[in-house]
Design a protein around this nucleic acid. Structure first.
Length: 416
RNA sequence: GUGGGUGUAGCUCAGUUGGUUAGAGCGCCAGAUUGUGGCUCUGGAGGCCGUCGGUUCGAAUCCGAUCAUCCACCCCA
């Protein structure tokens, strides 16, 4: 038990870390390319932030939060998602007083107490973006295009983008009451959870997986048809910008999303039916949290799911950051020479390793092979007296002679 | 939270109707080759059979519980 990571958590081991480095590097590049700046926020926040921000009718808040009292008796919660904390930070640091809009991105771990399964962990990592201060449709499109470009850049081919609108504070209540009227007719046929949804959040009946509910929901009024002219125009405009960018999309009126704060645009990006990215607009979140009436939009993208999908599709080529030179040594004098040479190479920016195990030459060669060293330099008494050593290319097996004094310069040429 | 599958070496897995000292392949270490990795051959190390309890003369094997893990549902990234 002591040597077992807690349920729903996992280690990212050295042999797969290169995948994360690749993904993270791409995140930074794409976000900077779009003009977004990274923000880092605490792992835990006041519990109330999530209750108010995420919404206390959501599953996340009702049963999935890691909440605890600290020694001062404060109720704190490990963040179950990124937006609420980032919104809090935006307000607290008066970022609305700086240049608007604020274009932010983040890479952070999130925590939800759920039963683990494929692509679902209790601790997981999200890449997300948020734009605060703009309600224009081109902002929605920009956020979506950013996510889409990111996935494309990583080589994902079969990704599908689904877009919907959940309306605004004007049209949603009207629509909700229409929905309630509609579903009330079929009250006796709805499943248990949908009966309670009828009172709390009727929109979620539409994406119930129960066959009967599905059937009934199929003919339910859709918000996409019922929204106010402003919301309809907004959605049309978003899709126009997406078309203009060549980003394929389809509307899916059943996308409702589990978080309460969404208004107007919501979207999901799926791969093989798995949602790897979800997001939307939230025009009231900042003001609900006590900030100015600033609109926002963003998405969250699950990195474990992303890497899983990339793995399944062979999108990782392998670790390319292996040591350039392993310096094998025979004897105590050679070890010192190897040690000196390795440090010189490192200072010149060439990665180098020496034997730390006092092993035989053969064992050193095996080790060099195992760690994927690009070449091996062998130093013994002969080399020390002649000042020359053999450098072996581990891929081709070829050996060339290099001077120990000019090692750094020679290797710079060779490794080019 | 609900339903199902699986826990044996670092990994993938055998293990007969319960019966001595639990196996294989791969990997690891070493030697063959005393200064050169990969290929081959030889040898070696490595197991509280997930954990606890029960049945039995005897349990990896049967029963129960528990934990972990995987899959589906709910929900979500």
């Amino acid at each position: 038990m002591l040597t077992k990571a807690p349920r729903g958590t996992r280690d990212i081991t050295p042999d797969e870390i290169y995948k994360w480095h690749l993904v993270e590097k791409t995140i930074h590049e794409v976000c900077e390319n779009f003009g977004y700046k990274q923000i880092r926020v605490p792992v835990f926040e006041h519990t109330e932030l999530f209750e108010r921000g995420v919404g206390d009718t959501t599953d996340i808040v009702q049963k999935e939060m890691y909440t605890f009292l600290d020694k001062g008796g404060r109720s704190l919660t490990l963040r179950p998602e990124g937006t609420a904390g980032v919104a809090r930070s935006y307000i607290e640091n008066n970022l609305y007083a700086a240049a608007a809009p604020a274009k932010l991105y983040y890479i952070l771990s999130c925590y939800r107490y759920e039963k683990p399964q494929s692509g679902r962990l209790r601790e997981f990592n999200q890449f997300g973006t948020e734009v605060f201060g703009s309600s224009s449709p081109q902002t929605d499109a920009e956020i979506i295009i950013l996510a889409y470009s990111f996935l494309q850049r990583l080589g994902l081919k079969d990704i599908k983008l689904f877009v919907n609108s959940v309306g605004c504070e004007k049209c949603r209540p009207q629509y909700s009451s229409k929905l309630v009227d509609y579903f009330t007719q079929y009250k006796s046929q709805l499943c248990g959870t949908c009966l309670s949804r009828l009172e709390k959040n009727p929109m979620r009946i539409i994406d119930c997986k129960n066959n009967t509910c599905k059937k009934i929901g199929h003919n339910a009024p859709m918000l996409i048809d019922e929204q106010c002219p402003q919301c309809a125009a907004h959605m049309q405009s978003v899709m126009l910008f997406l078309d203009e960018a060549g980003v394929k999309h389809q509307t899916d009126p059943t996308i409702v999303r589990g978080l309460d704060y969404y208004t107007q645009t919501v979207f999901e990006i799926k791969h093989d039916g798995v949602v790897i990215c979800g997001g939307g607009r939230y025009n009231n979140l900042v003001s609900q949290l006590g900030g100015p009436p600033v609109p926002g939009i963003g998405f969250g993208l699950g990195l474990e799911r992303l890497i899983m999908v990339m793995d399944n599709n062979g999108l990782f080529a392998g670790d390319s950051n292996n040591t350039a030179v392993y310096i094998a040594s025979i004897g105590a004098a050679a070890l010192i020479a190897a040690h000196r040479a390795a440090n010189d190479l490192r200072k010149a920016g060439i990665s180098a390793q020496i034997d730390l195990m006092d092993r035989s030459l053969k064992a050193q060669m095996k080790y060099a092979d195992k760690i994927g060293a690009k070449c091996v330099l062998v130093i013994g008494d002969n080399e020390i007296s002649t000042g020359k050593a053999n450098l072996k290319n581990m891929k081709t097996g070829e050996e060339i002679t290099v001077g120990l004094e000019s090692l750094t310069d020679d290797l710079k040429q060779i490794l080019k």
